[in-house]
Design a protein around this nucleic acid. Structure first.
Lengths: 184, 184
DNA sequence: CGACTTTTTGAGTATACACTCCATTTTGGA
DNA sequence: TCCAAAATGGAGTGTATACTCAAAAAGTCG
């Protein structure tokens, strides 16, 4: 069962097409036909590689969830600015994945398993933000830091949604504004 | 063309079923069959009242968008707390509509007309928040007030999303925390 | 009641969807 | 060059969906 190069290339083309379609029009736009058309592939080839459409979409969504929170190694040393800059870079440089990430956030409410994974990921990010806050800002209690982190991450997510609706919205500026306000 | 009472009751039953289904499982769960089953009505009756499924959903979403921003008359006198309390009440008391509202916010990116309407509504709310900020907090410039309002509304929206994913999340507390931080 | 209108029913249509099947072609190591 | 395994094309399947229609039922008002 040696995989041929051409098959690996096909897999990449399919994943790229899926990512683009998810970013452009969400799950509704990501039909099998649309994916195959864009990837320049027939249905049979798709199912030679992926067991289901769901699997291809899952792979892209996993990628998107992980991309929002890079370098989990750095936990414990990173600054608030590091964390916020990472989010800003994610939104501006990987806008396709960012849009996929936000699409998941909402539609996941219908699918429990995705919702749980998303939530677990969110909680971990809140902890990292809270830790950075404890190090940099004088917070009275750990609970205070967590609440502050929830509000800051909420603001970043909310501003990212805003940006999805109106791409002329200056996400980076408002994100920095949010963290500045949080720091005071 | 006098409408019979029974027809009006049927219309209400359909809208209620649609609202529930939208809140529970989003647009995917709101199939014609699901709506008709829950309303206790056949497809023919549905199309006797609504020209399309889209129309019924539009009516519910319109209702949801308007419900988040009550008393547009009060503009010019309301406090920041009034505005935030209204949002909190919307989320906690009308959780069904709130979830529909948030569902629209994201999935609308695929439908331009809904996205535009949503955005227009958002901009109007930002203005009201900014006006309240100018009255209560000392902001340096109108632009500063608008940016602050965007961040605050972003935080509220983000926290509401958080609450949709995990209903044990204390939305009201965090919302008040956000506005307190904004006021400083 | 009786004439008329509105509403309801429920089987039926067209379409889009995810997915299958398998004959054919391509690949890449021996 | 040969050949088994891998990849592909593309017609075909079953199912769910939004929506239609004509006949039957129920409501309204003189």
């Amino acid at each position: 069962m040696v995989r041929y190069q051409v098959g690996i290339r096909t897999e990449r083309k399919i994943l790229e097409a899926t990512r683009e379609l998810l970013a452009e029009g969400g799950f509704d736009a990501s039909t099998l036909k649309a994916i195959c058309d864009r990837a320049g592939v027939q249905a049979g080839s798709f199912y030679n590689i992926f067991p289901s459409k769901e699997q291809a979409i899952m792979q892209v969504t996993k990628e998107a969830i992980q991309a929002v929170d890079p370098d989990p190694e750095d936990s414990g040393t990173e600054t608030l600015d590091d964390l916020v800059d990472a989010y800003i870079r994610f939104v501006t440089d990987q806008s396709d994945l960012a849009r996929v990430y936000l699409q998941i956030a909402v539609s996941s409410s219908s699918d429990d398993s995705v919702a749980r994974r998303f939530l677990r990921h969110h909680v971990r990010r809140v902890e990292r933000f809270a830790d950075a806050l404890v190090r940099e800002v004088d917070v009275t209690t750990p609970e205070d830091a967590t609440a502050k982190a929830e509000v800051l991450l909420g603001a970043l997510d909310g501003l990212a949604f805003r940006w999805v609706l109106d791409r002329s919205f200056d996400f980076a500026r408002h994100a920095r504004f949010a963290v500045a306000q949080c720091r005071r």
